[in-house]
């Protein structure tokens, strides 16, 4: 820069130029992502809110009032939670030890990891149909158990709660496992080695070192697993009892839209679903903040 005394008077710049000068031009690269976000998320979301507030009859909130006063609709909240909470906890409980154990190098690791992740490529419809065959009254499971003389009557695992719960576990476990594995792989192995040398046995190493260090990741994973399980829809329809105990909110919305052709009510159910998920995730993350987690 030349000295201020010799500087010529500054030319006046337009406001737009002044604005642009303050931002890095590279920020413009965000534009496509922003367009997608608005077109595919924000607009449909707002459209849904608007639809839900324009019911076929009554005031703007009458759909919301109806949802909470009609037991058929209201109970779907309970049915969804009844599947999502155990589904989430079971998935996390299965994935946690697997993720911790799968960090090391050992024979057959690749095979086990592939087997755990494979269900990702199966669509939820395929999983549902497969379970129907496998768990049905004349399916392999019941026939095997009957042949072995363990049961007289076939176990009823389809067309009810259990089939859907199993479908949630099979379809969501790979995601939960992968996410936890990435958190677990990020832990410094030397920290656990230090614990071992200084006197911690395998259980103490897990409970005092690995688990506390994994806790923040575990909370995030739990939130994701819950959202996945809460949205269960195809399996609830295929292996479940969609008019009874697996009448989840997803099914309630689907019915409203494609059986009653009440798009406004379907939107209302969807908005409530989103609100409940958001609330649960918020609670989970509020709990996370109470756990002391230094960064390094």
């Amino acid at each position: 820069m030349s000295s201020p005394a010799a500087a010529p008077p500054k030319p006046r710049r337009s406001r737009v130029k002044q604005f642009l000068a303050r931002y890095d031009r590279a920020a413009l690269l965000l534009l496509p992502a922003l367009v997608f976000l608005v077109a595919l998320f924000i607009y449909p979301m707002l459209y849904g809110v608007q639809l839900s507030l324009n019911p076929a009859e009554g005031g703007p909130f009458s759909n919301y009032v109806e949802f909470w006063s009609d037991p058929f609709l209201r109970d779907s909240v309970w049915f969804t939670f009844r599947l999502a909470i155990p589904g989430t906890l079971i998935n996390v409980a299965i994935a946690l030890p697997l993720a911790v154990l799968m960090r090391g190098r050992f024979r057959g690791k690749q095979f086990i990891a592939s087997a755990l992740i494979f269900p990702i490529v199966l669509g939820s419809v395929l999983i549902g149909k497969g379970l129907l065959n496998y768990l049905g009254p004349a399916g392999w499971l019941n026939r095997t158990l009957e042949t072995l003389g363990i049961i007289d009557q076939p176990l009823v695992l389809t067309g009810n709660y259990w089939g859907v719960l199993l479908a949630i576990i099979i379809a969501d476990l790979p995601f939960v496992f992968l996410l936890l594995l990435s958190y677990a792989s990020g832990l410094d192995e030397d920290v656990e080695k230090a614990a071992a040398v200084h006197g911690a046995g395998p259980w103490q190493r897990f409970s005092k070192i690995t688990f506390p260090l994994l806790l923040p990741g575990l909370v995030t994973t739990t939130a994701l697993a819950f959202v996945l399980a809460f949205g269960t829809f195809p399996s609830a329809l295929i292996v479940g009892d969609p008019s009874g105990e697996t009448r989840t909110m997803g099914i309630a919305a689907y019915r409203a839209a494609f059986q009653d052709f009440d798009y406004s009510m379907a939107s209302t159910v969807s908005m409530l679903m989103a609100a409940i998920e958001l609330l649960v995730v918020a609670i989970i993350f509020a709990l996370r903040r109470r756990v002391h987690t230094p960064t390094t």
Binding site: D190, K193, T293
Partner: peptide, 20 residues
Amino acid sequence: LAPERRGFGMVFQNYAVFPH
């Protein structure tokens, strides 16, 4: 013996202190 049974102390290159 497993490391925890030997009763030794150890210092690592990357500190390996317990961050929590």
